[in-house]
Structure formats: structure tokens, C-alpha cells
């Protein structure tokens, strides 16, 4: 009993750092780069991914014994596309401004490798509880990375964080940080730093 408990916790925490989808596995880079021009965009993209990931993991893990092995990938894609459509339509209805800011990247969650990757590697082989825990861990790891990246770019690029002024007036914003080059360079530095911390920890 104790063993299952610790491994459940390990299942959850592995997504946060050791197997962080962006920093260590380099999955889902397109939305990571595209929507992180501000912290709030990064956070909401992360939440949309958590919802899609948890729901499709739960459904796929429930039906894992019903789906024939040969056609599993198309079935997974349809299930994921269904939940992405639900997310997309709900966001368009309730938070239209945010939906507009994230643009095509909400429908593009469907081709986000993190989601299909977790179904193939985890949900199709494990029970519902563990799959949901795994999906939550991965989703939160993804969201944290996006929020950190968005915060760095927003603070340096416009002197604000979540829309509130944080830098002194004398600070001249580095416009390049909220433009595409800033996204690539900040993510490169973040991944490099993560490698360095992992090496230090041994």
C-alpha cells in the first residue's frame, strides 16, 4: 500500500521537473514560444492544455481495452480533437478576448505532441487514476514553464507582470523580448539553465 502511494506521488512530480515536457523533453515548443508574450497568455494556454490532457487521458485510459491496437492512433486523435473543440468553443463563448489573443494556437493543441505522447506512453497502458495523476503532473509542468517564460518576457519586454507595473519608470522596456526573437532566446537560455541545474544536482 505504501509503495503505491509513493509511486503515485512520483507519477505526479515527474512531470514538474525531471520529465518536464518543455525543458527536458522538448515537446510542445510551438505554443510555448508563440503565446508567451505575456504571463497571462502563457498561464491560460497552460490551463487549456491541462483540461484537454486530463480529459483525453481519462477517456483513453477508460477505453484502452476496447480500442484495437492497429487503429489506436486515429482513435486517440479523434478523442483529443473532440476535447480541443470543446475547449475552443467554450473559450470563444466565455473569454473572447483571450481566445483572440491565443489565436490559432487553441485549435493547434490538437497537434501538440505532449498530448498524443502521454496517451501513447502512459494512458493507454495504465488505469484511470494513475493516468489522471500523470496528465495533471505533465500539464502543470507545462503550465509552470509557460508562465515563467511569459513572466520573464513580460517583465523585460513591457516592464509589467500580469498587467501590473513592476519595473521603475526609468526602465526602458526591451521591445525585442515580446517579439519573436525574444521568445527563442529566452527559451534557449531557460533550457540551458535547466541542463546546468540538473548537472549540478548530479
Amino acid at each position: 500500500m505504501a509503495k503505491t502511494k509513493t509511486s503515485l506521488l512520483a507519477e505526479f512530480t515527474k512531470g514538474l521537473w525531471q520529465e518536464n515536457p518543455v525543458l527536458s523533453m522538448l515537446l510542445g515548443l510551438c505554443p510555448t514560444l508563440a503565446v508567451t508574450s505575456s504571463a497571462i497568455n502563457g498561464l491560460s494556454m497552460g490551463l487549456a492544455v491541462i483540461f484537454t490532457l486530463v480529459m483525453s487521458s481519462a477517456l483513453i485510459s477508460l477505453t484502452r481495452n476496447l480500442i484495437p491496437k492497429e487503429v489506436r492512433i486515429p482513435v486517440f486523435i479523434i478523442i483529443i480533437a473532440t476535447f480541443v473543440t470543446i475547449t475552443d468553443r467554450s473559450m470563444a463563448a466565455y473569454v473572447p478576448d483571450l481566445h483572440k489573443a491565443l489565436g490559432a494556437f487553441i485549435p493547434l493543441i490538437v497537434v501538440n505532441c505532449i498530448i498524443l505522447g502521454r496517451q501513447e506512453a502512459f494512458a493507454s497502458k495504465n488505469n484511470v487514476g494513475r493516468s489522471i495523476i500523470d496528465a495533471l503532473g505533465m500539464g502543470i509542468g507545462f503550465t509552470m514553464t509557460l508562465t515563467v517564460l511569459g513572466s520573464i518576457r513580460e517583465i523585460l519586454g513591457s516592464g509589467m507582470l500580469f498587467g501590473a507595473q513592476v519595473m521603475p519608470d526609468a526602465f526602458a522596456p526591451w521591445l525585442v523580448m515580446i517579439l519573436p526573437p525574444g521568445a527563442f532566446i529566452t527559451l534557449g537560455l531557460l533550457i540551458g539553465t535547466a541542463n546546468w541545474i540538473n548537472a549540478k544536482k548530479g
Binding site: 522538448l26 527563442f184 532566446i185 534557449g188 540551458g192 541542463n195
Partner: peptide
């Protein structure tokens, strides 16, 4: 620590 993906990202930035 910057070999591989990190340096690729920074070059892409340039």
C-alpha cells in the same frame, strides 16, 4: 550545458 537544443533556440532567435 548549451549544446543541442538551447544553442539551436538562441540561433533561431538571431
Amino acid at each position: 550545458y548549451f549544446k543541442g537544443a538551447p544553442i539551436t533556440m538562441i540561433i533561431a532567435g538571431c
